[in-house]
Design a protein around this nucleic acid. Structure first.
Lengths: 187, 187
DNA sequence: ATGTTTATAAAACTTTTTGTTTGATATTTG
DNA sequence: CAAATATCAAACAAAAAGTTTTATAAACAT
C-alpha cells in the first residue's frame, strides 16, 4: 500500500526544507517571503505552490518530518522495563537526536515555534511513559499522573531548549548527569 | 520625566490589543491581516501604521504590556525571606495574574507564541530567585543553579500552560497543592 | 531501451495585501 | 479658547501572493 514517491518530489522537499532552515537562521519567520524560499531552494515558485499552501504549511511538514525521525530512533528502545534508568535511556536518545539536528532545532526555536516542537516532544516522550509509570509503582503520591509527567518533561524540555540555543554550555554527558540527579526515583 | 500619553493613543492601543486577541482566538496569527485588525478595531489602517510597523510589532507591544502588569503585581511581594514558601507565594500571584487574563494568555499560546511568553515568565520568576537560592542554602547539590531554576520553572510553566489551555481541569488551589508537593525543600 | 507519465520551469497575468501620502476633520491638551 | 496632534478618508504605489498555460525534462513502468 505504500505509494512510491517520485524522486523529483523528494528532492524538491529536501531543498525546500534546507532553504527554510537557512532562512530561519538569518531572519524572522514572519519576514521570510515565499519567493525568498524558492530563490534559495533554486526552484520555481509555481513548484512551491504545487506542494504547499504557504510557508507555514512547509514549516509544519518539516517539523512532522523531524518527528518521524525521532519516533523511529525511539523504536529501538521499546523492550526494556520501565524504571528511572529506562527514562534516562530515552533522554540519551533524545539528546543525541537533537544534537545531530541542532541547526534545524535551533532555527525553529529561534523563530519561536517552541509550541509545536514542545508539543511533539512531550507527545513522543509521553507515549508510553504514563502507562509505564502507572504499572510500575514509581508514583507513590496522589498527584495526578498528567501533572507529574508535564512537570518533569516540562523541566527537561526547558533545559533542553536552553542547551540547543547555547551550544557548548554543557556536554551531553553533563546534561544526562543533571537529569539523573533532578529526577527522583520515586515521586 | 513621565511623558503624558494622549488619550486618543491610549484608546487606539486598547482597541488594537483587543482586536488582536479576538482575532488570535479565531485564527492563526500568520493568517491575520493588518486590515483585519483595523476592521475589528474600527480604526483606519493609516492609524495602525502610525503606531506599529507590523502585526508582530503589535503583538510584542501587547506582551510587553502584560509583562509590566505582572511585574507590578509581583512588586508587592518583595520583602519576604526566601524559602519554599516564598516561592509558593510567588506562584500564587502568578496563577492569579494568568487567571485574570486567561483570554489573552490563551490566545497567545494558541498561536504558538510560547517562546516569548515563557521567556518572560522565566525572566520575571528568575529575577531575584537565583540570588536568593544562592544565599539561603536551599541548594545542597552541585548542579549549576541555572540548570536547577530552568528545570523547576520549566516544569511549572509546562503545567501552567496546560492549565491555561484547559480551563477548569484543576482549581487554583489544587495547582498550588501540586506545586507544593513537586518542589522539594532542599535540592 | 522506449514510450508514457508527471514534476518542474518559464513567463505572463490577476488579485490581494501592504505600505505611503495627502489634506480635511476631530479630539485632546494647556 | 487656541494650538497641537491624532485620526480619518481616499487615492495611490509597490510588493508579494497566488494562478494559469505551455513547453521541457526527468522519472517511471513494462
Amino acid at each position: 500500500m505504500k505509494e512510491k514517491i517520485d524522486l523529483r518530489v523528494v528532492k524538491t522537499n529536501k531543498v525546500l526544507f534546507n532553504a527554510l532552515i537557512t532562512l530561519m537562521e538569518q531572519k524572522d519567520f514572519e519576514k521570510i517571503k515565499i519567493s525568498d524560499i524558492c530563490e534559495v531552494a533554486l526552484i520555481n515558485r509555481s513548484t512551491f505552490y504545487a506542494h504547499y499552501e504557504d510557508k507555514y504549511d512547509l514549516l509544519l511538514a518539516m517539523i512532522d518530518n523531524l518527528k518521524q525521525n525521532l519516533e523511529n530512533e525511539l523504536k529501538q528502545n521499546k523492550e526494556e522495563n520501565i524504571s528511572k534508568n529506562y527514562f534516562i535511556e530515552l533522554l540519551k536518545i533524545l539528546i543525541n537526536h537533537v544534537d545531530e539536528k541542532r541547526t534545524t532545532y535551533n532555527s525553529i526555536l529561534k523563530n519561536d515555534k517552541n509550541g509545536i516542537l514542545i508539543d511533539f516532544l512531550i507527545d513522543v516522550s509521553n507515549r508510553d511513559l504514563i502507562s509505564r509509570l502507572k504499572n510500575n509503582n514509581i508514583v507513590k503520591s496522589n498527584i495526578p499522573l498528567d501533572i507529574i509527567t508535564k512537570f518533569y518533561i516540562g523541566g527537561i524540555v526547558s533545559i533542553g531548549v536552553d542547551w540547543i540555543k547555547n551550544k557548548d554550555k554543557y556536554t551531553k554527558e553533563e546534561l544526562i548527569l543533571y537529569f539523573d540527579k533532578l529526577i527522583p526515583d520515586k515521586i
